[in-house]
Computed example of a mutant assay.
Amino acid sequence: MKIAFFASSLVSAYWNGAATYYRGMVRALHERGHHITFYEPDAFERQQHRDMDDPPWAEVVVYGAGSEAEVLRTVERARGADLVVKASGVGVHDALLERAVLDLQGPSTLVAFWDVDAPATLDRLHGDAQDPFHALVPRYDLVLTYGGGEPVRRAYRGLGARECVPIYNALDPSTHHPVPPDPRFDGELGFLGNRLPDREARVEAFFLDAARRLPQARLLLGGSGWQDKPLPANVKYLGHVYTADHNAFNCTPRAVLNISRESMARYGFSPATRVFEAAGAAACLITDAWEGLEQFFEPGREMLVAASGEEVAAHVEALDAERARRIGRAAYERVLAEHTYAHRAAQLDALLAGRRRVPAEVAA
């Protein structure tokens, strides 16, 4: 199958939290025999902050995002693909792309909207009845999401989607795996995440509050945008942590912390990429509580769950090295058994098997 992907970036994780997800899915689909062309805009200095070369498992097309005409010419290059994917959050000309890819539909071409931030998209649509995407949702052959479970599926069906299926985040064991500890990341607790409007208050509540309660502990904060944020004296700010260092970041501290964005925690069933990256490194993960967690990992045995910064601090204080190793090892075994991108690509193949386009008027 020839698959055309229009998304933010495959080759750069700079201000691009979906990079690991795209890389894992695209590589796994390639390994199942598909040919993927990944179209990404030259925007947000991502090409200047690449953390990988063009991979052998995808053709990467970087297009100029300066004019609508150039975007439309790029879309036309995908004509004839078996599956065309418009991902959410490209960051430039999203509305144009959402319309333009639908012109590629044909008897042998399915067009899917792949929502890598369904909570944000749904909140936007529910808040604006005039959003032009309302009219487009029913025209897509399929809506895929990387999280959200039944609440998101129900919301998309309410917007007229023909079908909505979650393809959850997962692990690529070839890129995220255990490595020796790195002294740069020594500490009791590490958190990695960019500063975003619907995450910042939760970082205050779960990470910075925990840091204030653990004055003798050393905590690490990685990610872009935190440089002007007042931090407790025991928090070391690392700035952007490149993908190549994620394994060491996960493997070195006693524990690492996952903090869901507010919208994802509200919808539930939305495990962040970091959850699977940490599990793949056999890290001891502490996560904020969110509905659906038990579908992926067993709380208390495969990861620790906290409802507040106070509970995060209590977990860190009670955690010795041996227990941290046991929890990390249990998560590692679970993720390899059930939550790799090979599992997710097989799910997508099964979903697409034998599927043919149904014209909108018939589907309606």
Rank of each mutant, 00 (worst) to 15 (best):
M1L: 09
M1P: 14
F6C: 10
Y14C: 00
A19I: 11
Y21N: 06
H34T: 02
F38P: 02
E40P: 01
P41N: 09
A43Y: 14
R46A: 03
D53C: 06
E59T: 15
V60A: 08
A78F: 10
A81V: 10
A87N: 07
V101S: 08
A112L: 08
P119E: 03
L122Y: 10
D123C: 03
H126E: 13
H126T: 04
Q130R: 14
F133P: 00
V137S: 04
P151R: 04
V152T: 13
R154K: 14
C164D: 05
C164R: 08
V165P: 08
P166T: 10
A170Y: 06
D172Q: 04
P180Y: 00
P183S: 05
F185C: 09
G187W: 10
L189R: 06
L192N: 04
P197C: 01
A205K: 12
F206Y: 15
A211K: 12
R212D: 07
R218P: 00
L220E: 03
G222V: 03
S224G: 12
G225F: 08
A248Y: 10
C251N: 11
P253G: 10
P253Y: 05
S260C: 05
R261W: 08
R261N: 13
G268K: 10
V275N: 14
A278Y: 03
A282W: 02
A282D: 02
T287A: 14
T287K: 09
E291M: 08
F296A: 08
F296D: 12
M303R: 12
E310G: 14
E310C: 00
A313T: 04
A313G: 13
V316M: 05
D320L: 10
R323P: 02
R329V: 00
A330P: 00
E333K: 04
R334F: 01
E338N: 13
T340A: 13
Y341M: 05
Y341G: 02
Y341F: 15
L348F: 04
R357S: 11
P359T: 11
